[in-house]
């Protein structure tokens, strides 16, 4: 059985959907002959040709803007931003146009597009390559923000994102691009968007996370399980809109919750989850909700990046404090 990495699962999903739907086009910087700087589009140009897979000039605002134009005219564009740190020139197009197209035209036009971007730290990259700013997009009505955390979910969720009739930010945690392999059958089966995934079931505490932090979170969960605790781990996967039902159901069972994210703490997806728990799950709680997050600092250069990214030790300490509260 083919066991592939998360980034290979992205390629596999793109290839599958390009084969299935002629309207799907893939473009960005260095994505054609070079196959993308992370090789996420490797082999697509050879297979689908210039009309379906093409390099753009080096302008992220351009990438975002033409995506809106193509999508409004019936294509299903999948745009790659080389790094999320360079997406901000395109922010105007995504926020002012992609996210609003359907609403402002009362459905006459729409924007069935996917904006892909590798994101997050932990790969010893230079400045501007390591931030986790999913919350900027999660704030915007009309967008979906989807973050896969395993090869199988990358495949299934990307297929869902391309097939979704509305714009999806598909943020790929590059730290775990090749962290594990998984058997991912190329069967074209999408996974549901707007749905959290329960990765471990347990009764004592709920750990809520997404993206690359899945790695440390599962490691801690496994340690605690070995120590006799029963830990539930939820991969939020779609951070906008949030599947609070799954999280609240879990908390009703466990009464304790730790949210783990790589992004800065303030006004983050974790803040939103915690606020929702306060609104709707307060009386299920046996302990205050804890957040283990990146700090409210500029993402440090890589010498300190693992001091910034929540460590297993920080997660474990938060879990123990919550359990012992």
């Amino acid at each position: 059985m083919p066991e592939i990495t998360l980034v290979e699962a992205v390629t596999q999903a793109l290839a599958y959907e390009m084969g299935a739907d002629n309207n799907v086009v893939v473009f960005g910087e260095d994505i054609a002959l070079n196959g993308g700087v992370f090789r996420a589009t490797d082999g697509l140009h050879a297979k689908f040709g210039d009309d379906r897979v093409f390099d753009t000039p080096l302008a992220e605002n351009l990438i975002a803007g033409i995506t809106v134009g193509m999508a409004a005219q019936g294509l299903k564009p999948v745009a790659e931003f080389q790094f999320m740190g360079f997406i901000y020139p395109g922010f105007n197009q995504i926020v002012c146009h992609a996210a609003r197209m359907r609403n402002r035209t009362r459905g006459r036009l729409s924007c069935p597009a996917v904006f892909r971007a590798p994101y997050g730290g932990g790969i010893r990259a230079p400045e501007h390559h390591s931030e986790s700013t999913e919350a900027l997009f999660a704030h915007i009505p009309g967008l979906r923000v989807v973050i896969p955390s395993s090869p199988a979910r990358a495949y299934g969720l990307l297929l869902a994102a391309i097939r979704d009739p509305d714009p999806v930010m598909f943020l790929e945690p590059k730290r775990i691009y090749r962290h594990v392999k998984q058997d991912v059958p190329d069967n074209g089966e999408a996974l549901p968007l707007d749905t959290a995934f329960v990765l471990r079931e347990g009764n004592d505490i709920t750990l809520v996370t997404w993206g690359a932090m899945i790695k440390e979170t599962l490691a801690v969960a496994d340690q605690l399980t070995n120590e006799g605790l029963s830990v539930e781990v939820i991969d939020v996967a779609t951070v906008k809109p949030l599947d609070m039902d799954t999280i609240l159901q879990s908390i009703a069972k466990t009464g304790r919750c730790v949210i783990i994210q790589e992004a800065v703490k303030t006004c983050s997806v974790g803040s939103e989850i915690a606020a929702n728990i306060a609104e709707k799950g307060l009386f299920d709680l046996h302990a205050p909700v804890k957040r283990v997050t990146g700090f409210d600092t500029t993402m440090p250069y890589f010498k300190l990046e693992y001091d910034y990214i929540p460590s297993e030790a920080r997660i474990k300490q938060a879990v123990m404090e919550t359990l012992e509260y």
């Binding site: 351009l62 975002a64 809106v68 134009g69 193509m70 005219q73 294509l75 564009p77």
Partner: peptide, 13 residues
């Protein structure tokens, strides 16, 4: 910003 939508539309065409 509509100029880029036009470019995208023209690419689709």
């Amino acid at each position: 910003s509509q100029c880029l939508h036009a470019a995208g539309a023209a690419k689709a065409v």
